[in-house]
Design a protein around this nucleic acid. Structure first.
Lengths: 230, 230
DNA sequence: GGTTATTGTCTCTTAATGAGACAATAATAA
DNA sequence: TTATTATTGTCTCATTAAGAGACAATAACC
């Protein structure tokens, strides 16, 4: 009884980054009645582009449709193949899962990372998981299979791309202060940056447009709001 | 009659770079009696790591076993799926190809690039191709499917990695002159570099060890030979 | 009006980069 | 032996970028 509507052996996983104002976080799913944690992922339809499949999955999980999403590595080690993990997940689901035998196959996983504004989103679990939530990227619990390794590689990629891919673009609301942007950079690079130097460099890049000031009620000079020029 | 010993839907392609002394070249295969040109590629065994499969293929094609090899992107668009191309290749082979029906499936391809010393190698065709040879990377013929796009992306990746991954390491013989190394950089970046600045920067990096001079018979100062410190 | 914390910008220093200059030198020719 | 020639290794100078601190401006509170 083969009911696999997807390409065999091919999966994707996505590392969805959000920024809380202080820390980088990623979205993690919990499988029903197992305590097993995993990255949100999925499969590719027979008539579907790989990239579109991932966009579809991201949209289902977050409701967002136009986010920064980039493929960064494909994981294909044989050690990924642990059918007992998926069996446990299916069993805990406590349903007839004959139609899901294909889930017990070996999979190669294409990994993507996404940058989103955490406040825009109320994440929705998929049909195999019962909850999902944001976890600090520098304090992650153990995830299934090689998912912790996938997250590490995503972080490395994000760090090395921060200079030439515009990082904070999608992690912040459309208008933000220079300080907030600096916090994003510091969270990604995991180091303190010099305020004056940071401001000078970012402004010199010409990527920001300056708007009105933000009066918060704090007893000090009000910062300008900025947005990215498209 | 299913005789596919490999994972369905998953292929790899490799962009094998060599350096002739003046130009960057890549290895291209020609399929028997078709004139069709393609990147060397292959498939992944059921019990095989993805990376190992690519290493195996590279070794079969070049005889080399310890080369720089890096995954850079996975191509999964539906437009890759052109069964008529593979059918033409199988027909031209003029054999019973019932056992190869799996070749007509849709494939997602994980792409790698390799850097090798062109002079170390006499490339060997695989069982579907009858010849292979080196082509200038800036003057490539049309390749099947999306293979030209794969080459372009490989070039982009190589360029952006040249600074922090040691580039020339594997493209040159173990001992080389500063001028030869500069030629490699110029071929990859596709621009002229200033001699003095280049030499200063490379020497400052501490990656090179200086050896004896190379006396070629030319009527001018003899250059030092260098090697990379490992 | 004084106080306080934060912001925007400036200056000073140090490091990195781009470009040319020049002596050293390996082979050849006079 | 000495001039010639092309190339190499290195140096200097100018320009640009980066790191770090300083200071006036200012929003809200006292």
């Amino acid at each position: 009884m083969e009911t696999n509507p997807y390409l065999k052996h091919i999966a994707y996983d996505s590392v969805i980054f959000g920024f809380s104002g202080e820390k980088l976080k990623i979205l993690i799913m919990e499988y029903r009645n197992t305590g097993l944690l995993a990255l949100p992922g999925g499969f590719v339809g027979h008539q579907e582009n790989l990239n579109d499949a991932v966009k579809r999955g991201l949209s289902e999980r977050t409701g967002l449709s136009d986010v920064f999403l980039e493929q960064f590595y494909t994981f294909g080690n044989i050690e990924r193949y642990q059918p007992e993990v998926m069996e446990r997940i299916l069993k805990a689901r406590n349903e007839n899962h004959e139609g899901y035998a294909w889930l017990l196959d070996r999979y190669i996983s294409v990994a993507y990372y996404a940058l989103i504004n955490l406040n825009d989103v109320t994440p929705k679990p998929d049909h195999l998981s019962d909850s999902c939530g944001w976890y600090d990227v520098d304090n992650l619990p153990a995830l299934i299979l090689d998912h912790n390794m996938i997250v590490n590689k995503a972080m490395t990629t994000l760090r090395s791309n921060i200079d030439h891919k515009l990082a904070g673009v999608n992690l912040l609301p459309s208008r933000f202060t220079m300080k907030e942007l600096q916090k994003v950079y510091e969270a990604i690079l995991n180091e303190k940056l010099h305020r004056g130097t940071f401001q000078r460099k970012i402004l010199a890049s010409g990527l920001l447009k300056r708007h009105e000031k933000q009066y918060t009620g704090a007893a000090n000079k009000a910062p300008f709001l900025y947005s990215f020029v498209d």
